[in-house]
């Protein structure tokens, strides 16, 4: 049986983890590679890096981070942030990312999704959607960290990018992001039920029950969270055990990434 996934997400700027991670004693809590190794050992099902480096010229640092992570962690890695061209996707995949997450570029040019999927396969293309509620059962896409409205309906957009070949949707509620009050379950369920590709729920996790709700009530295939894991409120293992006890199918394999 396919298991629900728990995905920790690290914000990376100029090759360093923003705010750091302090759930274990790391030599360098700001090193994304060390954090990735710790999450690998903790049983994360996938990893996500969100690059928030302001300047496009500094991207070389990110590729190095991705390369070193892929050498050390034998688990799926999604990288997003500033992915604007086919070359950006190619460079991330060549560095060792398994999936590239695209957002603003897809909003401005839907065909970018199709081109990416045709070139590299749907399995590599994650479309990130930042949505805000604008009315009853109506959500709109926002860019620039939720500051810029686009007038685009989130549900119709999700269906469109799915039909263009996106392999997965990373859905963030900008109303809930950072609020720790739980996912926007109505948004998550509406989009998950509207598309045939997997949806990752993101934005608003404050408790382990929220993770359960995202899968059970939101119909998401995976849940993504940042702060509750980074600051040691809960471990990945606690989250997955909690979700398993709630009756969700979870992967609870032993996590020594070594061969006997």
């Amino acid at each position: 049986m396919l298991k629900a996934r728990v995905i920790p997400c690290l914000d990376v700027k100029d090759g360093r983890v923003v705010k750091g991670v302090n759930f274990v004693d790391l030599r360098d809590a700001g090193d994304p590679v060390e954090c990735a190794i710790a999450y690998d050992a903790a049983g994360a099902d996938e990893l996500c890096f969100l690059d928030i480096t302001a300047s496009h010229e500094e991207r070389g640092v990110l590729f190095d981070v991705v390369r070193r992570t892929a050498e050390a962690c034998f688990m799926p890695l999604t990288v997003g942030g500033g992915v604007r061209t086919i070359d950006d996707i190619r460079n991330l995949l060549l560095a060792g990312a398994d999936k590239a997450s695209i957002m603003t570029a897809a909003v401005h040019n839907r065909d970018f999704v199709r081109q990416g999927a045709e070139k590299f396969g749907s399995q590599c293309i994650v479309v990130a959607i930042d949505a805000k509620q604008v009315g009853p059962k109506r959500w709109e896409i926002f860019t620039h960290g939720g500051r810029k409205p686009t007038g685009i309906d989130a549900v119709a957009y999700a269906q469109e990018v799915a039909s263009l070949g996106a392999g997965e949707i990373l859905l963030t509620s900008m109303d809930r992001d950072g609020a720790k009050s739980g996912f926007d379950l109505e948004l998550t369920r509406t989009i998950a039920d509207a598309v045939s590709i997997p949806v990752i729920a993101s934005g608003g996790v404050g408790t382990l029950e929220h993770l359960v709700d995202g899968i059970r009530e939101g119909h998401a295939s995976a849940v993504l969270a940042a702060s509750i894991f980074h600051f040691g409120e809960f471990t990945i293992g606690e989250a997955k055990s909690y979700m398993a006890k709630a009756g969700l199918p979870m992967r609870l394999d032993p996590q020594t990434s070594s061969v006997q």
Binding site: D45, E168, S221, R251
Partner: peptide, 25 residues
Amino acid sequence: DPSLKIPHMGWNSLSANVQHPILAD
């Protein structure tokens, strides 16, 4: 079942039909 998404993406368990050295341990 329409709730099963495509691609089949993520972690799944295996059912072995035969004993094979590739599945040792």
